[in-house]
Design a protein around this nucleic acid. Structure first.
Lengths: 65, 65
DNA sequence: AGTCAATGGGGTAATTTGGGCG
DNA sequence: TCTGTCCAAATTACCCCATTGA
């Protein structure tokens, strides 16, 4: 499985959780989710970590998507 | 199987059923409806599941829309 | 170089949560 | 048993505009 290194933008993560991109930024600032910074200061998130958070919740619904 | 449907907020689900958002929260807490949590603790609901529940009840009334 | 969508930062509404009460 | 409401605290959404990314 090599899906672990792909980076997601704040907007992509926000869409997965159905929240505002700004909210994802706050999660990063609060340390709830790890984030990488571009030289320009924009945040990027590891897909593996986001998937883990999301699917960790989805499994409670009995679906594998 | 790809059930990649959107997620709904408590308020949106409440509007569909014409109930108070608090009631939707109780449904989730009682396991009557599946729910996932944002890292901040807010609930999100699967549109497909909500629709299924809603349509299922509407059919009992012989309604198509 | 120049366009345009997305992001960051700051500040302010709106929503959600959880408990308890009726 | 199920639902609506009041409350305080926490989380999230929307507004601005300068900067970054593609």
């Amino acid at each position: 499985m090599d899906t672990g290194d792909r980076l997601l933008t704040p907007g992509e993560v926000a869409a997965l959780f159905r929240v505002d991109p700004k909210t994802v930024t706050r999660w990063a600032a609060a340390g709830r989710i790890g984030s990488i910074r571009t030289p320009g200061g924009h945040r990027r998130f590891r897909e593996s970590e986001v998937r883990a958070l999301l699917e960790g919740e989805l499994e409670k619904l009995g679906e594998t998507r």
